[in-house]
Write a protein that binds this DNA or RNA. Structure first.
Lengths: 219, 219
DNA sequence: GCGTAAGGTTACTCAGCGGTAGATAAGGCG
DNA sequence: CGCCTTATCTACCGCTGAGTAACCTTACGC
């Protein structure tokens, strides 16, 4: 059993299935994030993964299946990152604050995951849109809950300027877009980013709760 | 539900080049918006346009060229719609208000244009990203100008919670995402949408200007 | 040892699509 | 009417890339 540690470097060692699957998924996320779903080729993915193409088909199925596996894994990671960052027993604004920080922390650490989730999965129709839409819906729902609870706590009635879901969508959208913007302006910290949003949104929201309303003047 | 957009039974009349180009561009925008750049086939575009494939190549070049033509035309339309909607001699908040209304008006009227610009062009790398990035940069610059001028008017100093460009990016992003959200919730009017944003952003921004700042508490 | 299943590969098929060559019809102009 | 120009079509080519068949090879239980 005195095996040579340096056998021919080409010959891949035999590894358990779970390890290979992880390698493949990592490679797939990287390639999908670089080229997008359609331009990504299974050949390149297999190459990056250091594995031959049939392995992918054998372990994770066809291209669509592979992509869905990627989305699910990354969506799960993101969701978990945000949820473990939130402390459920603090006021709504602090929950939002922690959630935002966790979110930007995730984006910073897993850029590629974020790219795949946000930029790629949305454009490719079909079964993928649903997956990502579910994630975003979860986010909107979560935020909407915070917003509405904060509003109700202060007795904010339903009015034309206020729609919990609409505001939540805008907030989530703003957070996402700011994340995108961040990818090209990485010279600010995640805390600063979250702080910008809080100052924009929460202050404005507070005013709404207080009954202050912006209305167009006559110009 | 998919009505027949097929050409009329009689074989194509000879039409001036400008007309054909318009037909082709319209078809291309429709098809690109439905399937995305890669999944869109030149055959389908030519079919929808009521024209044979070589015409496209002869008039507008290869697939990439065609797509760039689409982006440029739609970006131009959007920009013009927003700019003609803005009245330059009113206060910043009213300018923003009018700009937002024009923007949502455009999205409502030219859904497909918006889809191509926002969802498709971003994901396809290469020469396209630049085109769209330029458009967004123009928008951010425009909004940033409004925000900064409004801030300066009130003597707002540069501080950690305030970055004109960052806020503008967040606002533009929020507006875009809300537009996307709108595509699936078309039961609100463009005015209401713009009103939500104004109430979120402008109120919050006013607070900032007034020196009020949100900061995390100890939880 | 030795059979067998799981890990792994090479080398192929085949469809779809971008792009083009070459034929055809339609007008304008003498 | 004949002739040229230009608009337009039919029919094809070649490549790229998804997916697969068939084969090899190591580990390990008995």
């Amino acid at each position: 059993m005195t095996e040579d540690v340096r056998r021919s470097p080409e010959r891949a060692k035999r590894l358990p299935r779970a390890v290979r699957e992880k390698q493949i998924l990592d490679a797939a996320v990287a390639v999908f994030s670089r080229h997008g779903y359609h331009s990504a080729s299974m050949d390149e993915i297999s190459d990056v993964a250091g594995v031959s193409k049939p392995m992918i088909y054998s372990y994770l199925g066809a291209k669509e299946d592979l992509f869905i596996h990627c989305i699910r894994r990354e969506a799960g990671r993101l969701l978990q990152a945000v949820q473990t960052g939130i402390k459920p027993d603090v006021p709504p604004d602090m929950q939002l604050w922690h959630g935002l920080r966790s979110f930007y922390g995730f984006v910073a650490e897993y850029r590629e995951s974020w790219t795949v989730l946000h930029r790629q999965a949305l454009t490719v129709g079909g079964p993928f849109a649903g997956e990502v839409d579910a994630l975003r819906s979860k986010a909107i729902e979560l935020v909407s809950g915070l917003v509405v609870s904060a509003g109700a706590r202060k007795g904010l009635a339903e009015q034309a300027e206020f729609s919990g879901e609409g505001l939540a969508a805008a907030l989530v959208g703003a957070a996402e877009s700011l994340a995108d913007w961040w990818l090209d302006h990485s010279d600010v910290s995640d805390g600063v980013l979250a702080s910008w949003l809080m100052n924009l949104i929460w202050l404005g929201f507070n005013d709404l709760v207080e009954g202050e309303v912006w209305r167009p003047t006559e110009s």
